[in-house]
Each structure stands twice: as structure tokens, then as C-alpha cells.
Measured scan of single mutants.
Amino acid sequence: MSIQHFRVALIPFFAAFCLPVFAHPETLVKVKDAEDQLGARVGYIELDLNSGKILESFRPEERFPMMSTFKVLLCGAVLSRVDAGQEQLGRRIHYSQNDLVEYSPVTEKHLTDGMTVRELCSAAITMSDNTAANLLLTTIGGPKELTAFLHNMGDHVTRLDRWEPELNEAIPNDERDTTMPAAMATTLRKLLTGELLTLASRQQLIDWMEADKVAGPLLRSALPAGWFIADKSGAGERGSRGIIAALGPDGKPSRIVVIYTTGSQATMDERNRQIAEIGASLIKHW
């Protein structure tokens, strides 16, 4: 067993022997301040990774656009098919120029040779490549099948209805392509620590998230040296922004954090800054 596999296998073990965790309302004060600064709703939840206990939450059962955070769930569904012998990570998928959609920095470079399922998941999570996500959605049967996968996990809230990039439209009061912070946090925890996926697939999923290259201005910008984070960000229309993450000190994750916002007129930089400040408060009061 590799060191990384050992780390993920012992996530519940280490967490069980940690000192009790206590909620700190100071972080919620910052979440509410972010709402004021952005002029928009902000949803927040913080779960203990081992027990699933909610440590703090704000608007945990209000719907927010998922945006690209759905790509972690998508690759979880792909990995479940791999575990069941219905898919192979090494299978190569070929596609054409007509398949390319807006923001496809990886797939646009491989029109000639195609990409493997493993490479597509890596591109979808680490670079948020939209064509990679659409190609992977095709392998599982489309958005409705991802929703069905989530329902089978016990998540009857999260739903995907459309493809990239239309799913980022974020129309107010439109339930399409949305989740709730509580539902997303619980589902992410199941994917990373539950028995739904094999140990190898859980490790692969967290490795992809740990290698995320496009979430630097968010929670990662607030992390002290030595902290662990595996995350996936999302951005959408109407001032929408979000991030889902597993993080913790001492090089291992111990909490799940989900943050979503929508309806702001603020710039992307300002949305990023507010999420980073929430992260800084979380870490300060850990």
C-alpha cells in the first residue's frame, strides 16, 4: 500500500482519535458579512469528516447552483462504474471539434489522439474542462443518470439537468442544476469515506481534487503551510461562485467545507476574496 493510499485508508482512524471539535460562531459572522459585502445569498456548511456531524452552517438547506462543483460527483459516478466493471479508466475516447464547448483548455489539445477516461476526469476536476465533463456525462448516460446515481446514494436534493455550459445559467428560483450545502457536503463525505467506492477509487477521487489547479484564489489562499486540501470550485452566471473541499491540518483532511453564493453584482475577484476570507476565519478558529 502506498503512503497516499495509507493516508486515505486511515482518515477515519486518525479522526477518531482527534480531540473533540467545537464550532466557532466567528466564522458564521464572516459568512454573514460576506453576504453584506456581496449583496447576495451565501450558503455555508462545515462537517466533521469522521462523524458527519454538522459543526457550523448557514442557509444549509437553500438551493444554490452547483456550477462546476458537480464534476466531482460526476467522476465519482464514473469511478463507481469502474468498480462495477462497467468502465475502464484506460479506455480512450475520441471526439471532434464539434464536441468542444466553451472553456476546454485540455480537451482542445487532444482532438487528434483523444483522451482516456482517467485523463478526462483529471481534466474535468483539476482544470474544470467543460468538454471533458460533457464527454464523461455521455459515458454514464447524461445528466439524468448522474441525478439517479445521487438518488441511489441517498441524495434526493442534488440534481443535474443540463450539460456544460448551460448548467451554469443560475436563474433565480430555478431548481435545475442545483444542490443544497448540506446535501453536497453529505454526498461528498460519502464519496470520500464511505463504502460506495473502493479504496482505490476513493484515493483516485481525492487525488484529482488535491491536484486542483484553478481554485488557488479561494480556500487555498488562506491555508497555512502543512495543511491538506482537496477541492473543486465552480463559477456561473449572475454572480455565482462555489467551492467544495476536504481539508485539515497535519497533512490530512478532517472536515468537509461547502460554500456557495449566487445573485451578486460583485466582480469575480471580490467573490473570490470573500470566500478566501471565510476560509481564513475557519482556519483561525479551527
Rank of each mutant, 00 (worst) to 15 (best):
H24Y: 08
H24F: 10
P25A: 08
Q37Y: 06
Q37K: 08
L38H: 06
R41V: 14
R41Q: 06
L47S: 13
L55D: 04
E61M: 11
E62R: 07
R63K: 11
M67I: 09
T69N: 01
F70V: 14
F70M: 08
F70L: 10
K71R: 01
V72M: 04
V72H: 00
L73S: 13
L73C: 13
A77K: 05
A77D: 07
S80P: 03
R81E: 07
V82Q: 13
A84C: 10
Q86T: 14
E87K: 03
Q88K: 15
L89M: 14
R92D: 14
R92Q: 11
I93N: 03
Q97N: 11
L100E: 04
T107Y: 02
E108K: 09
H110E: 09
H110R: 12
L111N: 15
T112W: 15
G114N: 11
T116D: 08
V117S: 03
L120A: 06
A123C: 09
I125K: 01
I125C: 08
S128D: 03
A132G: 05
A132V: 02
L135E: 14
L136I: 13
L137N: 05
T138V: 13
T138G: 14
T139M: 15
G141K: 15
P143K: 04
P143N: 05
P143Q: 15
E145N: 07
L146E: 02
F149M: 14
L150A: 14
H151Y: 09
H151G: 09
T158P: 01
R159W: 14
L160N: 05
E164Y: 02
P165E: 09
E166M: 13
N168K: 02
N168S: 12
E169Q: 10
A170Y: 05
N173C: 08
R176C: 15
T178L: 03
T178Y: 02
M180F: 07
M180C: 07
A182S: 12
M184K: 00
M184I: 06
A185M: 01
T186H: 12
T187R: 03
L188G: 04
R189I: 10
K190V: 15
L191V: 15
L196K: 10
T198Y: 07
T198C: 12
L199A: 12
S201Q: 15
Q203L: 06
I206M: 15
I206Y: 13
D207R: 10
W208V: 03
M209F: 03
A211D: 15
A211W: 12
A211R: 14
S221A: 15
L223Y: 03
A235F: 03
S240D: 08
I243H: 02
I243D: 02
I244K: 02
A245H: 00
D250S: 08
K252C: 10
Y260F: 13
T262Q: 10
S264K: 14
Q265H: 07
T267I: 08
T267P: 08
D269N: 12
N272F: 02
R273C: 12
R273W: 07
I275V: 13
I275S: 01
A276K: 15
S281W: 07
I283Y: 15
